[in-house]
């Protein structure tokens, strides 16, 4: 009797999960399907002809390509800056003790918990005092302010698992602190640094809410997508969406398979 009710609740749970996954995938699937339909505005219900014509059209979007280049320009600065700041903060927070550390910690994770638009606005308001107008530079600063928190948390998690005796032993054997950091601490942290750099790149590249408030008259890929998506509804953006979905799918599957394989 008891097992019967349990299995019934399991069935209900499975049905619910199935519906949830459907809800998450349905809009994306519709967007992908519409990208292969010759109808414009994009539609899945008004099916005209199966076509790949919308994809080459992306290459003709000069403005979009210029904005894409800006996205990379921003990321080139945001990624190293965030990793460096995150690494420094992780080391300080792991090695320092006392109440002050908790306060520092609260301040350093606060940008993660702040709405993105507020960060963007605060940055342009601050830099206007020095005559710096909103542009790529302010976007780099606004993005770094909150993206750096993620490397900090990732690197901190790894630092906490470090065997401290290893460092002390190296020092006892006469290693200089700089040598110790370069030959023991950094190699130990390398996996965390690599994954936090990847995360920082994704967060910078995909960011919209902070960017649109801090970039002024310039654009990134995301601000341009939003501008076009608001104005019109064209299958060219759907084609871009297909690329986004495909790349994400590829990386997720590779990531999952690698994780399974490591087990």
């Amino acid at each position: 009797m008891k097992t019967e009710t349990m299995s019934r609740s399991d069935v209900m749970l499975n049905v619910f999960i199935g519906m949830f996954v459907m809800f998450m995938f349905l809009p994306l699937m519709l967007m992908v399907m519409a990208a292969f339909n010759s109808a414009s505005p994009p539609s899945v219900t008004d099916w005209q002809e199966l076509t790949l014509a919308w994809f080459p059209r992306l290459a003709e979007e000069d403005r979009l390509i210029g904005c894409l280049q800006n996205s990379f320009r921003i990321a080139v600065f945001v990624v190293p800056a965030s990793v460096l700041l995150g690494l420094s903060a992780a080391i300080l927070l792991t090695r320092l003790e006392g109440r002050a550390t908790n306060v520092l910690y609260a301040f350093l994770i606060s940008p993660m918990l702040t709405p993105g638009i507020v960060l963007g606005i605060a940055t342009i308001v601050f830099w206007r005092n020095f005559g710096v107008a909103a542009d790529l530079f302010t976007t780099i600063l606004a993005q770094t302010a909150f993206i750096a928190s993620f490397p900090m948390l990732i690197i901190m998690a790894r630092l906490q698992r470090q065997d401290r005796f290893q460092e002390e032993a190296a020092l006892d054997l006469g290693a200089s602190p700089f040598f110790l950091f370069r030959r023991i601490t950094l190699p130990f942290l390398l996996p965390a640094i690599v994954s936090s750099a990847a995360l920082a790149f994704l967060m910078s590249f995909e960011n919209y809410n902070t960017t649109v408030f801090s970039i002024g008259g310039s654009c990134t890929l995301t601000t341009e997508i939003a501008a076009q998506a608001r104005k019109a509804h064209t299958p060219v953006i759907n084609a871009l969406g297909v690329i986004f979905v495909a790349v994400t799918l590829m990386f997720s599957v590779i990531y999952t398979l690698r994780k399974q394989w490591e087990k």
Partner: peptide, 18 residues
């Protein structure tokens, strides 16, 4: 669940126009 989580926010919003 990770795929819809990681797909660009704007694309997920845009998908609803369909």
């Amino acid at each position: 669940l990770f795929v819809p989580y990681a797909v660009n926010e704007l694309m997920r919003i845009y998908a609803w126009l369909t």
